[in-house]
Write a protein that binds this DNA or RNA. Sequence first.
DNA 1: CACCTTAATGTTCAGTTGAACATATTACGC
DNA 2: GCGTAATATGTTCAACTGAACATTAAGGTG
Lengths: 208, 208
Amino acid sequence: MLTERQRGVLEFIQCEQREKGMTPSTREIQHHFGFASQTSVMQYIDALERKGFLDRHARKARALITPVQKVRITDIPIYGQIPAGMATLTEQTIEGHVSLDTRSVNASKNGRTFALRVRGDSMIDAHILDGDIVILEDRKDVQNGDIVAALIDGETTLKRYVTEHGRPYLKAENPQYPNLVPARELRIQGVMVSLVRKQMTVQRRKRS
Amino acid sequence: MLTERQRGVLEFIQCEQREKGMTPSTREIQHHFGFASQTSVMQYIDALERKGFLDRHARKARALITPVQKVRITDIPIYGQIPAGMATLTEQTIEGHVSLDTRSVNASKNGRTFALRVRGDSMIDAHILDGDIVILEDRKDVQNGDIVAALIDGETTLKRYVTEHGRPYLKAENPQYPNLVPARELRIQGVMVSLVRKQMTVQRRKRS
DNA sequence: CACCTTAATGTTCAGTTGAACATATTACGC
DNA sequence: GCGTAATATGTTCAACTGAACATTAAGGTG
């Protein structure tokens, strides 16, 4: 699809953007490759745009846009332990952020995406561990069998949502934990769409 | 820390960068806020830089750098099934990309980071499932107990690296799989630092 | 009131930047 | 050898851009 030189130019642009935080100007590209004229650069940029490897804002400085950057990177807030309902999911309870592109997660456009740090091993049989970051989506359509974050007795827990005989309850994926049958209402805060785990290596485990 | 107006300017810059893919020029900021002069904008940028909310490359166009963007987002290539050694980890075998910031992963600066899609359930007791994306780092210091991608008999497998009586072998985290004791050499391709899982929701599972 | 910080104005300037022009070279298939 | 596409050159231009200058205005504090 791309000639060798064209790929070189594209790589340089992407590399510069990553390192410097901005796309290089035509002159900078020119000097990096030792061209004697900007027109050479313009030709490459034209070709790259024509082939869809690049976007640009015409007549703006440093206005190249590599598709890599265009990938919607969602900055997902991680909430720690949540004492009460969604009302308290404010900035103060934010523990950190995960940034990943939308395709990595199953996230849809509509619906708020957020993340929770898992406490405890109640979902261990679903292979969700203590310390894992679970990415959830505020969705309406909760299905039987989905893993959800739900508010029960003023506390948020991660459980599997199961309906039996038309009545929903929350099932822990660990035989040591009881199922939770809601007394009155069951408030689903989010449906699990993805999971991120930081693997503890040996030396890291020793430190902590 | 910031005056109300200063925060407004910062928010505008960050917002523009996210939507347009590039930081606005002083004129663009000026017109957005209705200032009659760029100098007002310059003052805000000076203040924001002084207070550490902004970085800039002096005398370059659109060279503002917001700390948000400065978060190192590593674009990690995902390799599918790898037939042979690292030599074949070329672009052709790339299955896709995950983008996440460096803090989400345990990635260090040195060392190449890459990702593998897990096939099979040989690591199920380490809670790594079929289809999970494992993020690995090309590192020298492999520790006893680390989970590694290793090349054995011309195939790459994900196993736990265990040394016993000074001799290393590869342990599957599933009793149905045998341990692999290397006949000659054991080539470690990467140490697992992180894991990303796309949770299959019920309707998605039906589709696939 | 004096004093200070923050905010805004109007203007000028040198350097940067994307774009266009016509032309030349190289490589490759036929 | 001929045609085509990719690659490269030299130059010019209008527009854009960050920066600096000297001044002014508003708001709060003592």
